[in-house]
Amino acid sequence: MRFLVRRVLLLIPTIWGVVTLVFFLIHLTPGDPVEIMLGENAVQADRVALRHQLGLDKPLYRQYVDYLNRVVHLDLGRSIFYKEKVMKIIEERFPATFTLALVSMIVAILIAIPPGIYAAVKQFSFWDNLTAVISLLGVSIPNFFLGPVLILFFSLKLGWFPVSGKSGFASYVLPSITLGTALAAILTRITRSSLTGVLKEAYITTARAKGLPEFRVIVKHALRNAMIPVVTIMGLQFGALLSGAIITETIFSWPGIGRLLIDAINTRDYPLVQGTVLVIALTYVIVNTLVDITYTIIDPRVRLEK
């Protein structure tokens, strides 16, 4: 319980820091942000209005206090391009990103775990080496290259899946493979290294000595413990999928917050950029904390060490 409280309390300075950093982003622009957003030909009245709307006419400390105050009340300002509340736009787009990340996670698990187990069981074999090379390729292929290659073969040449957009099950296939491949590569490696470690433990030797069939030894005895680090990494990587989604969504015109962020950057819609960045970062922090807590509940050894 004390651990839980401590872990949640530790979130506060981090969240405050993230909000502060996001607040200062707009002050990094070379020159006047209002000028950049509206362009050189804007009318003076519009400039004054926007400057006032963004609070940029106030002293810096006042802007900062106001910003913190608004964020606490879940008000992220208004989008300049969409003329709507930033929070409302993000709420509409968030589910698409979340489901894409979830499906990609499932795809990654399906691709990753079986070869990882096989490589560990047949350590140093040809298949083990092959798996190692393929997973290195998997982490090396940029998703903005994999995505177009998949589109080229499976959409343009074979016509199996749609080129872009979100419309039903088929539209998930290519984006989730694009997003899930790097994670799959990481999971394969961790499954292999974790299971190789566990298979050397004494209780595995005991299980084998009892005459248990090898399949049972691996699935019932070894895998259970070997999966602990794998599950942890899966949790921690879920947030990374959110950032990977920025590029994947841009390639596939997926209506999520990743693409929203890039569109907002291109239209210089700074309040929307700040809002999206903030929401992605906070989601990541919260998911990581949840993973951490779950991990402690599942594995009591961690709690004892602390």
Binding site: G17, L25, A240
Partner: peptide, 24 residues
Amino acid sequence: MRLIDILLAFPGILLAIALAAFLG
């Protein structure tokens, strides 16, 4: 360490995207 925690709260290339977006 707290500063590092804050920067690590931005997954993957999000921080670089955010900075590049505003710096130009």
